[in-house]
Every structure is written in structure tokens, then in C-alpha cells.
Amino acid sequence: MPVYSLDRPIVVGVDASESALHAVRWAAVDAALRGAALHLVFAVPADAESPLDESPVRLLHDRLRGTAQAALDAAAEIARKAAGDSEIRDIRTFLVDVPAVMVLAELAATAYYVVVGVRGMSAYHRSLLGSVSTGVARHAQGPVVVVPGETDGLSGRPVVAGVDGSPHSVRALEIAFDEASRRGVPLIAVQAWEVSGDSDTRSSDDAIQLLTRMLERNTRDYPGVEVKSVVKEGRPARVLLDAAAGAQLLVVGSHGTRGYPGMALGSTGHALLHGSECPIALVRLRN
């Protein structure tokens, strides 16, 4: 099995919402599985650059910081409980005075994952996502996991990976194999494409060959992972969402530039973010 660096922490964006706590629980389990440190980050940006010491703005900001620190402490305890008998190597909390998207997107460059929740649990609110979730997914220079809701009951379900042949997709597949191996579950590798015109000569044979090539190296590295291949013509987002309906994690490359179109973040990525019922990892190669 490949050795993945343990010096990259898993970073979670925390606020006072229940949605953020879903992200904390998911991240805690993953950190325990890979022996990684868990960093919990709460962003409370100042409302003014240099408010007077006793101004209402300063007093409000200080009050918000106190509330934020209490939320961080509670999140750390929830993380310990979520990990159960497994031990998280290190849990740290960070209270920062910069916008959440800015700090989380920057931390993604050195984190194994940045994990965020979404606001609202109804189908309507999930379809809107949150400004932080959307912003981090768009701008982070590293893998981002968006947790749409409760993760209880997901263990034992397979991991699903979208495959398109791009460098981002190659890394996404490696991560998907690693997650499936650590969780002891099967991996479903999905190759989907959409015919765009009469001159398009792609076929299921082309897709099968691409998927086979991409699976070969990982199956050697992870001989214990059961793999199921799905090759289907159709809208990639719809095919992936159908495949992930009974999954515990969906892993896709973000902003792929080669391979079959439609598997980049773009419209497909947004459709996956808005429609996935399970946590989704968007994998972007670091610069």
C-alpha cells in the first residue's frame, strides 16, 4: 500500500451550525483512520481594520470571538467522541480573524483535506449550498470534502470514484482507493461520457480501455480492495449521482482539462455538489 504523508492535517471549517458539526464528525473518523492530525478552524473576521478599543464594533467582535472559541471547544469534544475507540493523533483549534473562504482555501494547499459542511438540511437548502462551501470548493488549491448532512449509518457502504483520464482524476482515483482500503469497503469506479455530436467517435470500448488503464496501477497497490467498474453513456453528473446513491463517499477530480468533457468542476462539479446525498471529495492537484 502506498505511504501517504502524515504531516498533512485534516482541516475543518467550524461555525456555530449543526452542519459544521457533521463535517467535524466525518473528518474525525477520517483522521483516526489515517493517523492524521485534526485542525478545527473558526473564522471571525474583524468588522473594521482598527476599531477603537471600547467601540461597539470592538466589543461585538470580542463577544463573537468568545462564542467562537466555545464552539471550537465543543467541536473538539465532538470529534473525540466521533472517533470512538480510535485515537486521533492531535486535535488543535484555531480562531482566526480573516474570512473563512480565504483561510480555508489557503490551508487546502498544505492539508490532506479541507472539510466543510453546508447550511440547511432540506433538499431546497442543500441545492443552494452555502457561500463558504461553494467558495472553498471553487478556490481551494487542494482536496476539499463537502459533507451534506448526517454521516451516521454510512459505514459499510462503498466509495465511488469518477474517472475521466485527467491528472486530477488520476489523483482522485488514488484517494478513492486509499479511502476504500482504510474503510474496508468496495470501490465503484465510474466512467461516464456524453456524445456531443455526429462527429464524436467515442464508444464504450474507448471508455473501457481508459478505465482499465487507470485502474491497473491502483489495483496492484491495493489488492484487497474489491473493484466494480461502471461504464455508461450519459450525463456524467447524473451517472455519478446514481452510482453514489448508496455510497459513503464520492470522489471526483476537479477542473480536469483532459479526457472526456463534463467531469471537471464546471457544470458537472456544481451539479454533484448540489445533488450528492453523501460526502463528496473534490480533488484538485496542488500547484
Rank of each mutant, 00 (worst) to 15 (best):
I175G: 04
E216M: 11
I91D: 05
L21W: 00
A48I: 01
A31F: 05
V251M: 00
L104C: 06
G142P: 02
L240E: 03
R182M: 12
S204A: 15
A192K: 06
A43M: 11
R202K: 06
L249K: 03
L210C: 06
E233P: 02
F94Q: 13
L282A: 08
V147E: 00
V136H: 07
T151S: 03
G165N: 12
E77P: 03
P148N: 05
L52C: 07
A245I: 08
R171P: 00
N218C: 13
D198L: 13
W26T: 06
I10D: 00
V114F: 01
Y124K: 09
P56H: 11
G262H: 02
G269N: 05
R286S: 09
Y222F: 15
V44I: 14
R238Q: 11
V225K: 00
Y124E: 14
A180Y: 04
A43K: 04
G184H: 07
S131Q: 11
D90I: 15
G135N: 10
R119C: 05
T151R: 03
Q209G: 08
T134W: 05
S199I: 11
F94D: 09
G35I: 06
R65F: 04
G269K: 04
V146E: 01
V185Q: 13
S127A: 15
G156W: 10
V252F: 07
D178H: 14
V170C: 07
V116S: 02
M214I: 02
L272T: 07
E277V: 09
G224V: 00
A172R: 01
D198E: 14
A105T: 02
H125F: 09
Y124G: 02
A82L: 07
V163C: 06
R8N: 09
R220W: 02
I208N: 11
D53M: 13
T151A: 05
F177H: 04
E77S: 10
R65I: 02
L273E: 06
R157V: 04
D90P: 01
A46Q: 11
T151I: 15
A109G: 12
T134G: 04
R8A: 14
A68E: 03
D200H: 08
A137L: 10
S86E: 14
D178P: 00
S166F: 10
V57F: 08
F42T: 00
A192G: 12
L21Q: 12
V160I: 14
R92P: 02
N287G: 12
A36E: 07
L40P: 08
V11F: 08
I78V: 15
E194P: 00
D242K: 13
V14I: 14
A79N: 07
V3Y: 07
R220N: 09
Y124D: 08
Y112D: 08
L128F: 12
D7N: 14
G234S: 13
T93K: 04
S133D: 06
L33S: 08
R8M: 10
Q248D: 05
R286W: 10
R171F: 02
A46D: 05
T134Q: 10
E226S: 13
A79D: 05
R213P: 00
T212H: 06
A109I: 03
R286D: 07
S133A: 15
E174V: 06
V231F: 09
L154Y: 09
Q209E: 15
P279I: 01
A70W: 03
G142Q: 08
V283I: 15
L187T: 02
S229F: 05
G156M: 10
